[in-house]
Nucleic acid binder design. Structure first.
Lengths: 144, 144
DNA sequence: CTAGGACTTCGAGCGCACTCTAAGTCAAGG
DNA sequence: CCTTGACTTAGAGTGCGCTCGAAGTCCTAG
């Protein structure tokens, strides 16, 4: 129904990437037409869209492969797939939390550069890193 | 006051990475002691901590370098630095928003794998990708 | 005096995820 | 018939951000 060029246009991936994904197993092996050219149907777009979300959220390719493999194995792999997704979801949540903490710091630092005003001299403060670095501690908003 | 090994321990970076960062300009050229060994003082830890946050939030090294260069140039670069950080902040915010949208999809998909129950057959639905992929549209929760 | 360990520089190697090239096949249009 | 251009394959190359190795110097403890 759809050759690689059209799929590329519609999915936003390059034809090169589509072949690469097939090669490594992210996309199922596509059926070929009488000229050995890949022939896709609409349904592949749904999978590509989901793939993109997994990648956007930082799932490493080997984990996506694991998921894709389970999917290709068909039914009975539901609970494993769910476990995979749940684990990933937790990681994404943690990452969002971390980013939000960084945003708070960033806001403070930007506020420190108020106006175009600058009263430099900085990146000093004993602050021995309280064992664990991340950001729930009492604010330190230096100008670095 | 502090040699590279101790800084490595206290910052969580490897000594190799610290030298690498200095080489590429992420860390200021460190003063050496009488044996040409790097000698750091506490203040560097503050900068490393901020560096880590920029990296956590996905700022590419060349942008961090730009910021570090401004910083090294000293005062009068405040407004440029602020602009850099503001731009980055917006990117981080956008990214967080995107991740949250993905989380919604992920939640829906996980809910679809309710229990260990599975009523397979999937990744089908015409769904021509509504031009922009992301996720504010009416839900589509396929099992892929 | 000697051995150990931490340091120095330079540069090669790695893992990831593409991205592109080369050389060739094929089908449709002028 | 012949060109055009989208496709095919295998495999090389790229950019990022480290990460490690080799070979050598230097301080310290036994």
């Amino acid at each position: 129904m759809m050759k690689i060029g059209e799929l590329a246009r519609r999915s936003g991936l390059s034809a090169h990437s589509i072949r690469y994904y097939e090669r490594i197993g992210l996309l199922p092996y596509a059926g070929r037409d009488q000229s050995r050219q890949r022939d896709y149907d609409e349904s592949i777009l749904v999978w590509i869209e989901f793939l993109r979300r997994l990648k956007t959220t930082g799932m490493p390719i080997r984990d996506i492969l694991r998921y894709a493999a389970l999917r290709a194995q068909g039914p009975n792999t539901g609970s494993e797939r769910r476990a995979l997704l749940e684990q990933h979801r937790q990681q994404v949540r943690d990452h969002v939390t971390e980013l939000q903490a960084c945003l708070v710091i960033l806001d403070a630092k930007i506020a420190g550069y108020a106006g175009s005003d600058h009263k430099e001299k900085n990146h000093d403060r004993p602050q021995p890193l309280p064992a664990k670095p991340p950001g729930a501690g009492p604010s330190r908003l230096g100008r670095d």
